[in-house]
Structures are given as structure tokens and as C-alpha cells.
């Protein structure tokens, strides 16, 4: 555990909590892509199946439970509790175009051809692109609430910090995981355009709106 890993995890947790609180406090999930949230719930479910087979640490186990719990709570709020506020008309990204090829890729490129390992690989690949429906939704409506941009910022920051963590681990522990690194780089790149808008607009007190 190094400082980048820890702040990365906390940043990830902050993103998840910000989104839950936003929906809970405003009693609305307007502007939030339910599809992205379903994908994240799928990511956590397929990745953390090792909860059933191996114990790493109390920290590890509890964070996994928190992530999974929050992911399903978010999906429940969007598709059940605050369903009336869900903006489904703008959430039109075709997720099967992500899930099907990624499922195929996880079968072809993995560390070990076993069910748990393939599901872990699937979750790593899927996480790298799971935010696309949300970004697509923002590009479609041309704007995002400021609180939504904070959510996206912490979610992107988390992956950027994980990249630093992997550089650290390569230098000080001497190993690396190619699947995680390639997917992590892809995931971080997807946020670059958003980071630029966040710094130039949101941090200067303006709402994030895209030019028409």
C-alpha cells in the first residue's frame, strides 16, 4: 500500500459517495446515466467474486463490500426509487456494443483461462469504458450539473492515481500487470477531455456546458 494507491481508493470512494448523496439530497437522478451505473455494478460484481475464495485484508474486504453495496444502491435509486427523474431519453448509448466485444476480449486475452480469472479480466476491461454512456449523455444534452462533474472528476482522478501507484509498484516491488495497466491507461485517457473542461470551466465557477 502506497500513498497513490490509498488516495486513489479514497478518491474512488469519494466519487461513489458524491453520486449517491447527490441523488439522495436532490431526490433526483437527472443527468446521470443509469447505463453507466449498471456497468459499474457489473464491474464490481465480476471483479470481487474473489471475496468468496480468498482473504487479503480487512481493508480490502470492507472496501469491496462498500463498493458493491454503493453500486447497487445507486442502480436501485435510478431505476426504482427515483425512476420518475431518470432521463432515459438521453441515456441512449448502446451498451451491448461494449459488453459483447469486451466479453470476447476477456476470453482471448487473460492471465489464465479459468472462470474467475476471465471474469476478473472482463471487469478490468469493462471498467475502462464503463463511463462512456455517461460521457455520451453529457455530450448529447450539452451540459452537466456541477455536482455531476465533481463525481466524474474524482472517478477520473482515481484512475490517474492508480497509474502512479503502478509506476511506484514497478520501481519498488518490481512487478506489473499488463492487463490492468493497458486498461487503466485507456480509462484515464477517456477522462482527459473532461479534465480539461473541469479545470477551465467548473473550477472557475461556471457550469459545464459544451458549445453547440
Amino acid at each position: 500500500m502506497n500513498i497513490f494507491r490509498l488516495t486513489g481508493d479514497l478518491s474512488h470512494l469519494a466519487a461513489i459517495i458524491i453520486l449517491l448523496l447527490k441523488i439522495w439530497k436532490t431526490r433526483s437522478c437527472a443527468g446521470i446515466s443509469g447505463k453507466s451505473q449498471i456497468l459499474f455494478a457489473l464491474v464490481f460484481t465480476t471483479r470481487y467474486l474473489d471475496l468468496l475464495t480468498s482473504f487479503i485484508s480487512l481493508y480490502n474486504t470492507s472496501m469491496k463490500f462498500i463498493y458493491i453495496g454503493c453500486a447497487y444502491a445507486t442502480v436501485y435509486m435510478i431505476y426504482a426509487k427515483f425512476k420518475a427523474t431518470y432521463d432515459g431519453n438521453h441515456d441512449t448509448f448502446r451498451v451491448e456494443f461494449l459488453v459483447v466485444p469486451i466479453g470476447g476480449l476477456a476470453f482471448l486475452v487473460n492471465h489464465d483461462f479459468s472462470p474467475l480469472e476471465i471474469l476478473w479480466t472482463f471487469s478490468i476491461y469493462l471498467e475502462s469504458v464503463a463511463i462512456l454512456p455517461q460521457l455520451f449523455m453529457i455530450s448529447k444534452t450539452g451540459e452537466a450539473e456541477t455536482i455531476t462533474t465533481h463525481y466524474l472528476f474524482f472517478l477520473g482522478l482515481y484512475r490517474a492515481l492508480y497509474l502512479m501507484n503502478w509506476i511506484w509498484r514497478f520501481y519498488f516491488e518490481g512487478f506489473f500487470d499488463m492487463i490492468a495497466i493497458v486498461a487503466g491507461v485507456v480509462q484515464t485517457i477517456l477522462y482527459c477531455d473532461f479534465f480539461y473542461l473541469y479545470v477551465t470551466k467548473v473550477l472557475k465557477g461556471k457550469k459545464l456546458s459544451l458549445p453547440a
Binding site: R5, D50, I56, S57, V109, E117, W120, F176, M178, A180
Partner: peptide, 10 residues
């Protein structure tokens, strides 16, 4: 494939 080292991560 290369090492499978990051299973302790989230």
C-alpha cells in the same frame, strides 16, 4: 501473459 500481480487492489 505477464504477471498477474494486482489482485490485492480494488
Amino acid at each position: 501473459m505477464l504477471s498477474n500481480a494486482y489482485k490485492d487492489e480494488l
